[in-house]
Amino acid sequence: MNQTLSQCRRPERGPVVPEDVYIFFIGGADEPALLAVASRVAKLHGVPPGAFAVVTDDEADEYGQGLRVELASS
């Protein structure tokens, strides 16, 4: 499973981007398995409410396009 973590920082110009934003990329399994993993991660201690997954594929026109799936916390 491939994972990438990046933390957003405030840009010099433009909108304020929260500093505690984490983005994970996971793949290598079918959609139900990946959503199950994402749901378990959303329930870990320290993960704030509001986590969501974006289901997409490598043929999406832009980064972040796809079906947004809200993940339950705790």
Rank of each mutant, 00 (worst) to 15 (best):
I23S: 09
Y63M: 13
R40E: 10
V37N: 04
G50F: 04
F25S: 11
I23Y: 08
I23G: 07
F24D: 03
P11Y: 02
V17L: 06
V55H: 07
G64L: 04
V17D: 07
D57Q: 10
T56K: 00
L34V: 05
V55D: 02
G64M: 05
V21K: 09
V47I: 06
D61E: 13
V16G: 15
N2E: 14
A53T: 04
V54W: 06
E19R: 08
H45F: 15
D58R: 15
L34M: 11
G66L: 08
E70G: 03
R68E: 10
Y22R: 05
G50I: 00
G27N: 13
P49V: 13
A72E: 07
I23T: 09
F25N: 10
A60E: 14
Q65G: 04
Y63V: 12
L67M: 00
P32M: 02
R10S: 09
V54A: 07
F25A: 14
Y22W: 11
Y63F: 15
G50S: 04
A72C: 09
G14L: 04
Y22A: 14
V17E: 03
A42R: 00
P18N: 15
G66S: 09
E62M: 14
D30Y: 01
C8E: 13
V37W: 04
E31H: 05
E62D: 14
N2I: 15
P48G: 10
Q3L: 12
L67D: 03
P15F: 09
D57R: 06
L5Y: 11
P48H: 07
A29V: 08
S6V: 12
Q65L: 08
G27L: 12
P48Q: 10
D57C: 13
G27Y: 10
T4F: 14
T56C: 07
R9F: 02
D30L: 01
G66Y: 07
P15E: 04
Y22Q: 10
N2H: 14
D57K: 10
Q65R: 04
A36K: 03
T4I: 13
L34I: 07
G27A: 13
A53C: 01
M1Y: 14
S6F: 10
P11D: 02
A29T: 13
V21S: 11
V54N: 08
L35V: 00
S73N: 13
S74W: 12
L44R: 13
N2F: 15
D30R: 02
R40M: 08
G28A: 06
G64F: 04
I26S: 01
G66C: 06
A60F: 13
D30A: 08
P11V: 02
P11A: 00
A53S: 00
R40L: 10
L34S: 05
R13E: 14
P15Y: 07
L71A: 03
E62V: 15
A60D: 10
F24T: 02
V41F: 03
E70P: 08
D20G: 06
G27W: 15
G50H: 00
D57A: 09
A38L: 05
F52I: 10
A29E: 11
V16Y: 15
V21Y: 10
K43Y: 01
M1P: 11
E59L: 15
